[in-house]
Write a protein that binds this DNA or RNA. Sequence first.
DNA 1: CGAATTTTGTATCGATCGATGCGGAAGTCG
DNA 2: CGACTTCCGCATCGATCGATACAAAATTCG
Lengths: 202, 202
Amino acid sequence: METRQSGPVGRPRGFDADEALERAMLVFWEHGYEGASLAGLTNAMGISTTSMYAAFGNKEELFRKALERYTEGPSAYLARALEEPAALGVATAVLAGVIRTTTRPAHPHGCMGVQGALASGDSGREVRDLLAAWRNNGCSRLRERFQRAVDDGDLEPETDPGLLARYVTTLAFGIAVQAASGVGREELQRMADAALRNWPIV
Amino acid sequence: METRQSGPVGRPRGFDADEALERAMLVFWEHGYEGASLAGLTNAMGISTTSMYAAFGNKEELFRKALERYTEGPSAYLARALEEPAALGVATAVLAGVIRTTTRPAHPHGCMGVQGALASGDSGREVRDLLAAWRNNGCSRLRERFQRAVDDGDLEPETDPGLLARYVTTLAFGIAVQAASGVGREELQRMADAALRNWPIV
DNA sequence: CGAATTTTGTATCGATCGATGCGGAAGTCG
DNA sequence: CGACTTCCGCATCGATCGATACAAAATTCG
């Protein structure tokens, strides 16, 4: 006797939720949280507002999920960079990753974590704080990685891991702003190379 | 016979336009172009929408004038820094100025030129481009200043002024993002000191 | 004074904002 | 089959958006 695969009860979804979330992420990335309208979002996602609310809750929840997707997708270079064996390699990989992601052709320029809601009106305050925490989290993970490098002897004992992390993230966020302004990939990479030439900056 | 001072014909303005513009600048600085509503702006300015439109044109014109005021006010450190005698002094003054302005207590954190409209919806596209040009102009003026330093022998002949300008502005924009995220003044200053310790970065 | 000019206060405009109500469509269950 | 559950298309909600119409108020000019 064959056990039939039992699908979920009710009418099945007429769209791919992952694909729709990817489209929403791109819209948020390009226009920011408040700059992305429900009409623009649902139009890009190819679904109606009803379907969006049923599947994702509301606009803010959609943004939160889009940010998670961004973190694990375009921004995954950070997690990979943290696994580099040496501190300099970590810093180099972070900057190279930021530059590649923020200047990719056919993708929005800049970083969603920076331009998603750097300043906002009342309706975007929570998302703005969420992104601030997202950025600070990136800095913290980098600091912890550099602390480990100090503990392992990769970095001199007197080096300040927090200062190095702040330096690298400041460059990363600055690169994101430059990319949003239209600055090209090659120029940014040359600048990043020079910025890490005297590593660690102490 | 006394010559009477002849004022402008018509009912005189009941508010100080400079003071109102200052208030509007602060609102744009804190909430960004699209995040600042007409109601919030006019409320902070202490005038009605009618008076705002009569005095400044419309929201976009108001922002342009607020940006000019920001350039000559909170952002005046750039013009002063360019007059420093040595290239290192210029870079040091730019970063110190950015840090002071973006972390001033009782003022909005961050830089109006960065968070005013880094990403935007359709209605903010022109302002977004205006700010991108504003940022690129800052980088260009810095590059010209470093070129002069090369010509004067202050910097080695083989140094790339454009690369140095891109480095300093990237740090400046990154600092603006960090300040918007709540990072403190002292930590940013320590980081900036370290970033310029190996000047010029070649 | 009265005519002309400009500003101000109030009230409101059409458009768009994010978010929902509702009935029919499309499936799984018994 | 009929009952049940879920999703979708359409219409629309109240609030807010930026922007104006209109008339009274306040000033200069003749």
